[in-house]
């Protein structure tokens, strides 16, 4: 089996400040990896570097492309990266407004990725958009409404539908449940888990919510000050943390 994503010594600094440093990991098909750490630990910087939105100062990010096998996405041209971003990748932003076109209907939001990769049959595009909206529990009668009229949870689900419609293999998520009510979070988590399993998705989830990674992630990477301080099986890292920072993180969670 070929790893889906191989990250080697990725480093990004902002002047003297470290974004992330010497990050290495391998993500296998079907694996979900969580990245946790406090604000400023470099997890969002890392996610931007992995998804081609930010050019790291050093390192390699090898993605196993469908056509050409593993390729360094950092050495790819922008057109190739954009094509990957809308076919094989998905990016779910914390704030749905960053990931949606607020001036375009729900159906148009989902259909955009299809049209971007060449779909030119309105009926087909609409049918596939409707199918995906149903899969994220958005009823057909809301299809022509704009996202601004949706609740926060619905917007987040719409963002997920918009991202998954092209059948990507790798999903980047930045705090996907941040800013949502706990009851809405639970529903979203269950949906994400189901989709990950049904579609055999691999995912990198950045969050500071340890409960979210316990439920979604197979593996966990703990970051502090731009470095990975600990990595391993999610339940092992959470239940038997080896690094002082992880121990602090785990012991700081409020119990309900």
């Amino acid at each position: 089996m070929t790893p889906l994503l191989e990250v080697r010594a990725v480093t990004k600094t902002y002047g003297a400040r470290i974004g992330c440093r010497d990050v290495d990991f391998t993500l296998w098909p079907g694996e979900v990896m969580g990245v946790v750490g406090e604000s400023g630990s470099g997890k969002s910087t890392l996610l931007s570097c992995l998804s081609g939105q930010l050019a790291p100062d050093a390192g390699e990010v090898l993605f196993d492309t469908r056509a050409g096998g593993p390729r360094d996405i950092l050495a790819m041209d922008e057109a190739g990266r954009r094509m990957l971003a809308r076919t094989d990748w998905a990016f779910v932003h914390q704030n749905p407004r960053d990931g949606l076109r607020m001036g375009v209907s729900a159906g148009g939001n989902v259909g955009e990725r299809l049209m971007a990769v060449g779909a030119r049959h309105y009926g087909d595009i609409r049918a596939r958009a409707a199918d995906w909206l149903a899969r994220v529990d958005i009823t057909a009668d809301r299809m022509d409404d704009r996202p601004g009229t949706f609740s926060g949870g619905m917007q987040q689900r719409l963002q997920i539908a918009r991202n998954l419609v092209t059948g990507p293999r790798l999903v980047f998520m930045d705090e996907p449940t941040g800013g949502l009510d706990v009851s809405v979070q639970a529903r979203l988590l269950d949906m994400l888990r189901g989709l990950v399993r049904q579609m055999g998705l691999s995912a990198v989830i950045v969050t500071h919510d340890l409960a979210v990674v316990r439920l979604l992630a197979d593996r966990l990477m703990v970051m502090k000050g731009g470095h990975v301080v600990e990595a391993g099986l999610t339940d092992q890292v959470l239940d038997d943390p080896q690094h002082g920072y992880t121990q602090l993180l785990v012991s700081s969670v409020l119990q309900v």
């Binding site: 922008e78 259909g111 955009e112 990769v117 609409r126």
Partner: peptide, 22 residues
């Protein structure tokens, strides 16, 4: 400009899609 550079024109059809939907 980046979209023109890359012939990244899916968005143009989104406009037409919205027309038909509405």
């Amino acid at each position: 400009r980046k979209m023109h550079e890359l012939s990244d024109y899916g968005l143009m059809h989104v406009k037409l899609y919205e027309d038909i939907a509405r």
